[in-house]
């Protein structure tokens, strides 16, 4: 079993919920990212989603858009993001890293070359936001050949018919985007999430992670109660913005915040 599936199945056998954290590679500076990845793990994160900066992050709200802009101000590329993952892997070989981003930089490198370099960098999964399963027929087998698990998204508007397509294409887990808007938008409707979970559980046995709208211990707890894990993104990225000029405060505030989430979901 590959690392992402293994980690999630181990958590499930221990009756634990997964805590997934999203950061953008190179935000606010390239030097921040690798120490931050270790901080996340130390504070209790199970899976890291590493965002690849892109000039046009179409599906993101303002908080994460700005993170992409901060990273791009340092010209952080897809290959730079992979180099950060590689450096992290020197001392941590077990925490899964899911690379999250947009298709264009990958098209530029070429699917095969990308998969090869991502595997070498210790990447375990991908979430390519603007690559739905309908368009991923060429990408998926290439990723699989390199031991990388593609994760696809479910949305509140996803029909049962499409949910089947999405779950069939997904490996590791499926990612339920719990809000109709962009990342960081409004508040979480937990009853709605619970209703969707019971629908999706009939369609697939894959673990379901819920993201978009998790901003504190209470919302993480609420999500973990109905799903297999919670993804936290904008709330961490906000700390990058707040402490962009203070690397020590940045690391310590993230540590404290993630610990609070961990405690809430355990």
């Amino acid at each position: 079993m590959v690392q992402l599936s293994k980690t999630l199945s181990d958590l499930a056998s221990d009756n634990k919920k997964a805590l997934v954290a999203y950061i953008v590679a190179g935000d606010p500076t390239p030097g921040t990212t690798v120490p931050l990845m270790h901080t996340l793990v130390d504070a209790g994160v199970d899976v890291i989603e590493l965002g690849m900066p892109f000039s046009d992050p179409e599906a993101e709200g303002p908080v994460i858009q700005l993170a992409h802009e901060r990273a791009l101000a340092h010209h952080v590329s897809l290959r730079d993001s992979l180099a950060m993952a590689s450096e992290f892997r020197q001392t941590n070989q077990t925490t899964p890293i899911v690379l999250m981003g947009y298709l264009n930089p990958i098209e530029f490198i070429g699917y095969e070359q990308f998969a090869k370099e991502a595997e070498a960098a210790g990447i375990n999964g991908t979430i390519i936001v603007n690559l739905p399963p309908e368009e991923s027929g060429e990408m998926d087998p290439i990723l699989e050949a390199h031991g990388i698990e593609p994760v696809y998204l479910l949305a509140p508007t996803t029909t049962d018919e499409r949910a089947e397509i999405v779950c069939r294409a997904s490996r590791g887990f499926v990612y339920y985007v719990s809000l109709k808007g962009t990342t960081g938008a409004s508040t979480l409707d937990i009853d709605d999430v619970a209703e969707k979970m019971s629908r999706f559980r009939k369609i697939s046995t894959l673990p379901i992670m819920v993201g978009f709208g998790v901003k504190d211990g209470a919302s993480a707890r609420a999500v973990a109660d109905v799903a297999d894990g919670a993804v936290v993104g904008s709330a961490i990225v906000k700390l990058m913005e707040q402490y962009r000029d203070d690397p020590d405060m940045l690391q310590s505030s993230v540590k404290q915040f993630v610990r609070e989430l961990r405690a809430a979901i355990d």
């Binding site: 179409e58 599906a59 298709l103 936001v129 603007n130 690559l131 739905p132 368009e135 696809y152 998204l153 479910l154 949305a155 508007t157 996803t158 029909t159 499409r162 999405v166 985007v177 109709k180 808007g181 962009t182």
Partner: peptide, 8 residues
């Protein structure tokens, strides 16, 4: 080539 949120 869009996010799942737009597919429907």
């Amino acid at each position: 080539f869009v996010s799942e949120t737009l597919m429907a």
